[in-house]
Structure formats: structure tokens, C-alpha cells
Write a protein that binds this DNA or RNA. Structure first.
Lengths: 138, 138
DNA sequence: GCTGTTGTTGCAAACGACTTGCATTTATCA
DNA sequence: TGATAAATGCAAGTCGTTTGCAACAACAGC
């Protein structure tokens, strides 16, 4: 596990702990953005006792270190996925079964400059999520 | 106030009440998406006593009737703005002061077909919000 | 390896956004 | 004007997330 991720930790004076290793492992073996409670449930099912609060705090640290990105699908909760070398991308989520698929495209590259020109904002981030019906549910 | 909006109400067997008129008025005189508590505070400051719960329920009705659209900026809460004839659009929000500006463009029209082709989802909705720094805060 | 420092954890409790249940009020219509 | 059914207010509950604090455990230095 860990590898370079583990390194980003200690570089920052942070400690490599059992909960952090376990949470990282869960994220590594999942290929869609997970909610905090999904991660916690996964740990529990794997007989790894980690407090829900620790999951929150760990994800917050991961996010600060740029290890995970936070996504939101108008669900009233956040989801997290590992960045680790993956290109910037977006998602689509099914209203029926909740399945989330990656979109390996970001159609916004050209738009950013236009947005900055139009609004005089400095664009730092953007969120783009699609919602629809997957092949099984449509 | 109201006009055609008022009509959408009664058409549906719904009633035009004091809280609903007041909430509609608040939305009409504001030009950015408001959170529920912002709306409630605005009512309270205007000496209009409306329960917070009623604001939630009213916005839910407005949304069902297609009168408002719901936006979210990775804040952990939703915001609402009147649709009333306004074209589909997106927003940009300042990390510093929280100011929200409209973007009168949607660069995704051409992308939707591509997304549907790639994922075989039926795309029903999308959310696209930018986050950055406004001219004053940058 | 032992030990001290200090970052991290677990637990309890708080918080904020949002929802639900229910008795009371009130818009609407005959 | 009165009946009725929708809407409101209030209290309480849910759910996601955060905070306070004492106990714990990495890990650096001995």
C-alpha cells in the first residue's frame, strides 16, 4: 500500500497509523468515489475497528495532502476518491441504482479562460457532475 | 408578485399563502442563489414571521413546480434561485467572500451527446459550478 | 529496546442542514 | 358563511459532519 502516499505523510510530520493505512487500502481497492459511511462500513465489515470520526479526520488530512478529491452529487453528502496519478476527470451518477461511472473527459479546458475573462474571477476549481439513468435502470 | 407563478400554484390545487408570497418576494428581489437559512433570515429581518420548516417545505414545492432550481457549491447545503424565464446557466462562487456570479453560458450542450454515447447513461441533469476568487478577493 | 514528546484516536457530545408528526390555522370553494 | 383539505408552526428526530478531551501510540532520540 502507501508507497509514495506514505511518504507524503511523513514529509509533513504526520504519522502512518493503522486507521490511515486501512482507509487508504479501502480507497485503493474501490474504483468509485465513496462516502464516509461507505468507507466506515467497509472497514467494519473487514473487522477493522476504526471510529467514524477518525474516518472523517483522515479524509480531511488526505484531502489537505492532495491525496483524495472530494465529489458531490446533490446527495447532501460528500464522496472521496484517490487521486494517485489519475487524470482530472468527472463522473456520472445513476438516479436509480446510484452507480457512479467515470468520465475520462473534461470538456472545460477551453471554457476556463472564457469564464475568467467574463467574470474577472480567478478560477481555482470546478465541479461538474452528471446525473441520469444507467443502462440497467433507464 | 406571483403572476404566472401564482397561477402555477392554483393550477395544482395548491394555495397561495402569506409565507409563500413572502418567500417568493425574497427570491424575486435577490439575484443570486440563496440558502434556506439566508431566505429565513431575510424574512425575519423583514419582520415576517415564517418558520424555518415552512421555508424548506415551500422551496420543495417551488422546486416540484419548476419555479426554482437548486444549486450546490460544495458547501454542504443547497441554494435556490428563481427560474422564471431565465435561461439555463451556471455559476461561479468566490472562496473568499462567498459572492456568487452568474455565467450566462453552458458549454455542455455539445458534450451531453458525447457523454451519453460514452456511458450509455440517459443524462437527465448536470451540475457545473466554478469556484475561485473574485476581483476583490484575488 | 526504552522513553518522552506529540500527533492521533475513540468516545461523547455538539452542530447544522434537513425532515417528520401532529395539532392548529387558514385558503379556497360550494 | 361554513366545511374541508391544504399549509403552518412547533417539537422532536435524522443524518452528515465537527469539536473537546482524555487515553493512546508513532517515531525520534537516547
Amino acid at each position: 500500500m502507501g508507497h509514495s502516499l506514505l511518504a507524503s505523510f511523513q514529509r509533513d510530520g504526520r504519522r502512518v497509523t493503522r486507521p490511515r493505512k486501512a482507509i487508504l487500502a479501502v480507497l485503493e481497492r474501490t474504483r468509485h468515489p465513496m462516502s464516509v459511511s461507505e468507507i466506515h462500513t467497509s472497514l467494519t465489515r473487514g473487522k477493522i475497528a476504526v471510529d467514524l470520526v477518525t474516518v472523517y479526520r483522515t479524509l480531511s488530512v488526505f484531502k489537505q495532502l492532495g491525496m483524495v478529491s472530494r465529489v458531490e452529487f446533490q446527495e447532501g453528502q460528500f464522496r472521496y476518491e484517490l487521486c494517485q496519478g489519475r487524470a482530472h476527470h468527472h463522473h456520472i451518477r445513476c438516479r436509480g441504482c446510484g452507480h457512479i461511472a467515470d468520465l475520462m473527459l473534461c470538456p472545460l479546458k477551453k471554457v476556463l479562460a472564457m469564464v475568467e475573462r467574463e467574470t474577472r474571477f480567478l478560477v481555482e476549481d470546478h465541479s461538474l457532475e452528471f446525473i441520469g439513468w444507467c443502462p440497467q435502470c433507464r
